[in-house]
Simulated scan of single mutants.
Amino acid sequence: MSDPEAPLAPPAAPRVMICPHCDWPAIQEVKGQAEEPPEDPADEASPLSSEFTLLQCANCHKVSLQLRDIWFFDSPNEVPQFVYPARRQLSDDIPEKLRQEFGEARTCFDTKAYTATVVMVRRTLEGIAANNGITERNLVRQISKMRDQGLIDTSIADWADGLRVLGNQGAHYTGRKVSREDANDALDFAEALLDHIYVYKRRFEEFKKRRDAKLPHQTGTH
Rank of each mutant, 00 (worst) to 15 (best):
N132F: 05
R164H: 03
G127C: 00
P37A: 04
D161A: 03
M17C: 01
F72I: 08
I70Y: 13
R202K: 08
G175C: 01
E35G: 09
E191F: 10
W24N: 13
Q28I: 03
E206A: 14
S46R: 07
L48Y: 14
D23I: 10
A160D: 07
L139G: 08
E29D: 06
Y173S: 06
T117D: 02
P4Q: 11
Y173G: 11
A34T: 13
M17Y: 06
Q89V: 02
L67C: 15
T115S: 13
N59D: 12
R87D: 12
T124A: 04
A26S: 15
L166F: 07
E35W: 15
E29N: 07
R147N: 14
I143A: 06
S91R: 13
E104T: 12
G32C: 13
Q89I: 09
D40G: 07
S91F: 11
G133W: 11
K62T: 09
T221D: 01
L187S: 05
T111K: 02
S2F: 14
W159V: 08
R106I: 11
S49C: 07
E206P: 05
Q169N: 04
A58F: 08
A171M: 00
A183E: 09
I152G: 01
P11Y: 09
I156Q: 08
P80H: 06
R15G: 01
F82Y: 15
T117N: 03
Q56K: 10
A6V: 05
R68K: 15
G220L: 05
A42S: 13
Y114E: 12
P4A: 08
P37V: 03
K208H: 00
V119H: 02
Q28E: 04
Q169F: 01
K112S: 10
A157T: 05
I134W: 09
E136S: 03
E78C: 06
Y114P: 08
T219W: 00
D185L: 08
E205P: 11
V30F: 10
D212N: 13
A34S: 15
T111G: 06
P38T: 00
V119L: 07
A6M: 05
L55Y: 13
R164G: 01
S91A: 12
R202L: 10
T219D: 02
P11F: 08
L55T: 12
K112C: 05
A45N: 14
K201V: 09
C19Q: 06
M1A: 04
K145Y: 06
G162D: 02
D185S: 12
R176W: 10
E126C: 07
V63M: 08
T219E: 11
A34R: 15
D93R: 15
F207I: 00
M146T: 00
A86T: 14
R122C: 04
A13P: 07
K31A: 07
L151T: 04
A45I: 10
H172S: 11
R147Y: 09
P80V: 12
Q169G: 01
A13F: 03
T221E: 03
